[in-house]
Design a protein around this nucleic acid. Sequence first.
RNA 1: GGGCUCGUAGUGAAGUGGUUAUCACGCCUCCCUGUCACGGAGGAGAUCACCGGUUCAAAUCCGGCCGGGCCCGCCA
Length: 584
Amino acid sequence: MRILSSEVTTHVGDTITLKGWVQSRRDHGGLIFIDIRDHQGITQLVIQPETAAAFALAEQLRDEYVISARGLVRDREEHLKNPHLASGGVELKVDELVILNRSEPLPIQLHGEAMASEDLRLKYRYLDLRRPKMQTMLTARADLYKRIRDFMETNEFTEVSTPIIANSSPEGARDFLIPSRIHPGKFYALPQAPQQFKQLLMVGGLARYYQLAACFRDEDPRADRLYGEFYQLDLEMSFVDDGEEVRSLTEPLIKSLVTEFAYKQLLSADVPRLTYSEAMERYGSDKPDLRYGLELIDLSSDLAASGFGVFAGALTAGGVVKAIRVPGAASLSRSQIDSFTDIAKTEGAGGLAYLTFADGEVKSPIAKFLQPAELAAIQQKTGAADGDIVFFGADARTVVNKVLGRLRIEFANHFNLKDPNVIALCWIIDFPFYEMNEATQQLDFGHNPFSMPKGGLAALAHPDKLSIVADQYDMVMNGYEICSGGVRNHSPEVMYEVFAVLGHDQAYVDARFGAMIGAFKYGAPPHAGCAFGIDRILMELTGETNIREVVAFPKNGSGVDVMMSSPSVVEAPQLTELHIETVE
RNA sequence: GGGCUCGUAGUGAAGUGGUUAUCACGCCUCCCUGUCACGGAGGAGAUCACCGGUUCAAAUCCGGCCGGGCCCGCCA
């Protein structure tokens, strides 16, 4: 009878077979201990010289040999029990030993405290995956999938697989292209998201769609962004014209994942809704981490008549003066403050003014430029107390928000304000429909062109296009964007107008979104949906800071699979078949 | 595309101009009957990423180049 190591303790007195890898061998000369590891755990084998054949084989064993061991499970004497091992109360006295496969010494150490570099771990991922942590990750991911599916099915969503071999999207991220063999010069593309397909499913009469969808984007990766492919919980609901319906339906899923899957604590029972502009004003970010305060405080009106040139200059130019109070920051050294100043400068600030509150007084090079009433207002509005520093940003509103938003994160990191056991969720709503492209000074889509502008056609006529708001929402988890969605634009008339604002005619829209806009002409129901980033959720819920840690076989930061050596060159005939000229 | 940073036995690290490049783990040989991070004795293993320069002398300084990581751009 073959059993798993997790069951060993219940088989005392039985003769069983264990199969697994050699975790370690302790050869005492006349007595050999082997720790055998399967995917459930570790069990100690004892091989004695009396079982000569097994003993001879045991002497040959090395780390990571694959073996099968048959013998009697017996209780250990009290003083021989190992409390550090789940099966430490018992051991297997081996009668028969079989070496199923041998192993060369491993190129990376799996069980020591010295962890191999990520590069080597990825090259030998099939070994890295043997580590208990990675085994746990794989099963956690499968558990996450199951919980998501259960929730979606309970809520009467229907999973539909949409094409992987699809069409290039003219807007958005860089596509992975697939040359067509049958149609010379034409290309398929891997979908960046099933966006258009799911909207067409709504037109097709499906009430509620979902999919654990693979998405493909050829953009440079980050620690929280995979290269190439990633997975989304993609969903869409018909006859929904209010994003709140999508938010309130999906919110319990994420909450339950926090408390019942990750066993973490929600910062608040209610998930706050923040408008985009409110988030930018208070946190300097559209994905604020709400686990800590450090809010941005607008002091423009209090400093309107300031004699301090930097403040006055910013305000007369139409900008703002905002501040961030950092409790306990008076302990910062000069060089630490300098490094925060450098960060502020990389974000576009000219410098970083600050007031130190210590010993009952205000210490700062800039204090002499400020009136007592101004200092009092600053202290009152920021709540600054002894031991704090108030840092200032004075510039155009967008610059100040960006600089202080970045500093807010840096301060939180420096002062360790992120509680790893707490998950803070929030929804960011009402994104601007259009934004100004700083480089080209041209109007462009803020988020995506498929959302419904709030107010529809009438709103699009507003002279200030930047004031138009999209019925578009993101969910943020501890500072990471984990969901993006919107009420879709299902009206051909509004769709054409959305593009017309940017100067595109109907032919432009038809050429790019012909299938979808064509479908909308045949009774498209109002619909709304969203997509949750599964990898990112799993990363944050498992406390990882690198998203590659939650993927079995990720590409590295250069988009290379160092294990499989992809991308790779292909044979010339393959290229010929695809009508691609060979480049030498 | 840009910025910062790292590259030293199989693995992880130490080594900021000067003998034979150090340590831990791993590996090999021998010894060991209660270990569980077993222990003991011995041994092998390095193009200090690569190329060039400065110097009496370079792992160390300088230039270049390749590779990794993080960030900016980018990610509708």
